[in-house]
Nucleic acid binder design. Structure first.
Length: 858
RNA sequence: GCGGGCGUGAUGGAAUGGUAGACAUACCAGACUUAAAAUCUGUUGGGCCUUGUGCCCGUGUGGGUUCGAGUCCCACCGCCCGCACCA
């Protein structure tokens, strides 16, 4: 009897696959193509379990599609620009480029043992000059097609380090390095015109049938189409009217004040005139730029003294306040507040003692609003107060429409459609990114670089000296020999743009580049036409909005510029969002460190005994926090390499697929990994046992085993096709148990184990190959055709139906599978329990669901 | 604050509106063994007593729709993710 030596067989079969070149994708017109893609990783240098889970799922799909006769493209690359490389250079010297490429090599070494069916010949990193040079060409095409422009926008500004901060670098309103209070500051930046495509990106969501509904819903809400009323408040002092936009024009009768953003032109005007206003506005600008920071900040207001006239009654004056929660980016940067029907407005009005007027009441109520805003559903009927549109009782929806009609007829406002989606700011004031290929010329202004000068490569050093990353700010700004250049238009001295691109740009088209990674243009239309779209895209739900929306926009823009065929406008035919891999945290319940912070123990430092968990060495009690995100600081990270060297890659693959549905988080447990390993051993031993049986012999229950085999083929195939990997695996456990207990002869058992190996092969390809070879299978299991269930073997002669009486299970009957409803009803009514319940009477109703259930209503 | 998701035994979870708890872990018992490990077999949601082909309860909480609800609807509670410069 031989032993399951995972590492040995894994090396062997990986070598065999590489030699056979079966994962290198080539265009084969006529063969159905299938493009599987997992979101490419950031090269942190350390592969984690989340990667293993993501790539294993992709691998299952790729291998399954390969065995169903598809021409599969399954590439891998690196999302390699970004802050961590600069942070590393800042913290420990060195160069972001060296750090990044070393990490890529390290991560590739960690990925290779997983035995993924990847086409490494197409690999690239977004920081390769070749890749970002093509991205610069795309940028120039976008510029030419009016898809990019410049405008002012706010950034986080660290007033001590004198540098721009990413949202991530702002902690509690302070800069992460300096600790200074962050301010919002305006800067001229480049923008993609994604908002021009709001309607298109919204309506096309309907065509994405194979995307999760939640992702489509999140994108829909993010784009945020709204219908509302836009109108102007006349100023009592005769100044320029204040334009406002509202989605609730029906509440105009409850208006309390007009609010403007601190960045509104009127606020800026007052800021220049009055020290008090300037001080208030400065206070408003404290804190980061995230919507979360703005929305959760304490509500601040300042009465400008300006008064405006209510559009319905010129004698009704409303005050104009500057309020910190009003965003200049949305609508017109000015609103009217109706505190009675909006909680945020109400809190503000109570704080500053502004009037609260109901615009409507509930039908059976006249109580004015106190501290809870009255916000009925839009479809609920309410009683309107002196409504100008002539309404008394109506739903919110009716009232909104009536108000818009009224305003349009009266000529003081018009119904407009707005979107929440803002243009995509791509400028970053950082070194480690794709340089924006334009030049600033004193004479010609902003001049695009010539395509023949691409790539505009990042300078590796500064005139022979290493670039200094220890100084805050963008080293490109301080790099004269790179920055100074000739104007591409007039040839006179000019300066390069030193901003680099958002890394989201890099990841918005890499999937297109994989179809022709070495093309001299961003894509090659023939290859793109053959391989696009991505048939199955797999990644974390954290990318549900930004990355996926940007990629959808980019594909449209690339198509306009002739880099993608019309059919690739929506680049991802099917999307799957997988959950995280989590692990319990072991927090010491009895002790803190000298700074009062919790102490976290590694899994190997604790033991489970007497119904509790304790530190092995000290016996201190542990508080177990289950299912937490793996994090270095919590000491709960599981290293895939350690698992692979202990059990082999197949065990790691099997486990990450087995315990949870793929879209949900899976908790890594030592016992679970152990169980996966045991099971693979069991299958291995079964294979061995069958090898020792008398060849070709028949036995007891051959047919039963084969029937079960065909049912397993059906169920596992269904599971794999619908991302029900955990269910497929549960079914494979079941079939393994059946096979292990079977008294069938060698011929049937051999057939069963070969099918079992095939069904397991997408998940544990090495073990499957080895069993296949042992049983004398032809060629590689990886390229062998997927087994097909024999329909005849799936048909059951009889079925057992539960009998319910008034919805409660009271017995069961076994009947012929094809017996008609009336006969089933007759047999069910004759059942002892039914007779007892009916007590001689007639049933009120009998429901027969064929093949499922019988319910008798007594 | 806004948007989205999730909530089922001791644990991970299964269940086209149709027998809740498949499959696995853990625990317990047994077989094998001098012993242990490994392996194999079996039991296990809670309660009741009359021990049965038994009854009652049970899918975060409270309502609702339905012959029938873990699943659909409403409200609430808890946890997780995203919020435009993290990738």
């Amino acid at each position: 009897m031989s032993r399951y030596a995972a590492t040995k067989i894994e090396e062997k079969w990986q070598k065999a696959w590489t030699e056979a070149g079966i994962f290198e994708a080539k265009r084969e017109p006529g063969k159905e193509k299938y493009y599987v893609l997992e979101m490419f990783p950031y090269p942190s240098g350390k592969l984690h379990m989340g990667h293993v889970r993501n790539y294993t799922m992709g691998d299952v799909v790729a291998r399954y599609k390969m065995s169903t006769g598809h021409n599969v493209l399954h590439p891998m690359g690196w999302d390699a620009f970004g802050m961590p490389a600069e942070n590393a250079a800042m913290a420990s010297g060195g160069h972001p480029k060296d750090w990044t490429y070393a990490n890529i090599e390290a991560m590739k070494d960690q990925m290779k043992p997983l035995g993924l069916s990847l086409d490494w010949s197409r690999e690239f990193a977004t920081c390769d000059e070749d890749y970002y040079g093509q991205q610069q060409a795309l940028f120039l095409d976008f510029l030419e097609n009016d898809l990019v422009y410049r405008k002012n926008a706010v950034v986080n500004w660290d007033p001590v380090d004198m540098t721009v901060l990413a949202n991530e670098q702002v902690e509690g309103g302070r800069g992460w390095r300096s600790g200074a209070l962050v301010e919002r500051r305006e800067l001229t930046q480049w923008f993609f015109k994604i908002s021009d495509y709001s309607e298109e990106l919204l309506s096309a969501l309907d065509t994405l049938e194979n995307w999760p509904a939640k992702v489509r819903l999140m994108q829909e809400n993010w784009i945020g189409k709204s219908r509302g009323l836009q109108f102007a408040f006349e100023r009592s002092d005769g100044g320029e009217a204040i334009e406002v936009y509202t989605t609730r024009p029906d509440t105009l009768n409850g208006a309390s004040f007009v609010g403007i953003s601190p960045d509104h032109p009127i606020a800026k005007e007052l800021e220049a005139e009055s020290a008090e206003v300037a001080e208030f506005v400065a206070e408003c600008r404290k804190g980061g730029t995230t919507e979360e920071a703005i929305e959760t900040a304490e509500k601040l207001g300042y009465d400008t003294g300006i008064r405006v006239k209510h559009p319905l009654n010129p004698d009704w004056e409303l005050p104009v306040w500057i309020a910190n929660f009003i965003l200049m980016d949305y609508g017109t940067g000015a609103i009217f507040a109706c505190p009675a029907h909006d909680q945020r407005d109400l809190d503000f009005c109570r704080k500053y003692d502004l009037p609260v007027l109901n615009a409507f009441f509930m039908p059976d109520d006249v109580a004015p609003v106190e501290n809870d805003a009255l916000v009925p559903m839009k479809s609920e009927k309410v009683r309107w107060v002196d409504h100008f549109a002539g309404l008394t009782e109506a739903t919110g929806e009716e009232a909104i429409n009536a108000t818009v009609d009224f305003a349009e007829k009266a000529g003081w406002g018009q119904g407009v459609t707005k979107y929440r989606l803002r243009d995509w700011g791509l400028s970053r004031q950082r070194y480690w990114g794709c340089p924006i290929p334009v030049v600033h010329c004193p004479d010609c202004g902003v001049v695009p670089e010539k395509k023949e000068n691409l790539p505009i490569a990042l300078p590796y050093d500064e005139d022979g000296k290493a670039i200094d990353f220890s100084v805050p700010g963008n080293p490109l700004d301080r790099h004269p020999s790179w920055r100074n250049c000739a104007c591409p238009a007039c040839g006179k001295p000019a300066q390069r743009e030193t901003d680099t691109m958002d890394t989201f740009v890099d990841s918005s088209w890499y999937f297109s580049r994989f179809t022709a990674p070495k093309a001299a243009t961003p894509t090659n239309l023939e290859d793109a036409a053959y391989w696009m779209n991505v048939d199955q895209y797999i990644g974390g739900v954290e990318h549900a909005i930004l990355h996926l929306l940007y990629a959808r926009f980019f594909s449209r823009a690339m198509q306009i510029c002739g880099h993608l065929p019309e059919s690739a406008k929506e680049p991802f035919d099917a999307l799957f969002t997988q959950g995280m891999v989590t692990h319990a945290i072991y927090e010491n319940a009895e002790r803190k460190d000298e700074n009062g912070r919790s102490i976290y123990h590694y899994p190997n430092e604790v033991e489970d005994r007497d119904g509790g968990v304790y530190v092995k060495e000290t016996g201190e009690k542990i508080k177990v926090i289950p299912s937490a995100k793996m994090s270095k600081s919590k000491n709960n990270v599981v290293d895939p390499l350690a698992i692979i060297s202990a059990y082999g890659a197949d065990t790691a693959r099997w486990f990450v697929l087995s315990d949870s549905p793929p879209e949900r988080d899976v908790e890594w447990t030592a016992s679970g990994a152990e169980a996966a390993y045991k099971h693979l051993n069991r299958v291995w031993n079964l294979c061995d046992k069958i090898g020792e049986m008398e060849p070709g012999a028949a036995g007891q229950g051959d047919e039963d085993l084969l029937r079960e085999m065909h049912k397993t083929i059906r169920d596992v195939t269904l599971g794999v096709e619908s991302f029900g990997f955990n269910a497929s695996i549960a079914r494979l456990y079941g079939f393994t148990n059946t096979l292990a207990k079977s008294k069938a002869g060698q011929a049937a058992q051999k057939q069963a184990i070969m099918v079992l190996a095939q069904l397991m092969s997408p998940m544990v390809p090495h073990l499957a190959e080895d069993i296949w070879a042992h049983q004398g299978g032809e060629g590689l299991i990886t390229t062998a055709p997927w087994p097909v269930a024999d329909e005849e073997m799936l048909v059951e002669a009889s079925v057992t139906l539960p009998i319910q009486i008034n919805g409660k299970r009271r017995g069961e009957i076994t009947v012929a599978a094809d017996l008609d409803k009336a006969e089933v009803e007759k047999i069910a009514l004759a059942h002892e329990a039914v007779q007892k319940a009916l007590n001689g009477g007639a049933p009120k109703k009998v429901i027969v669901v064929p093949g499922r259930i019988v319910n008798v209503v007594a």
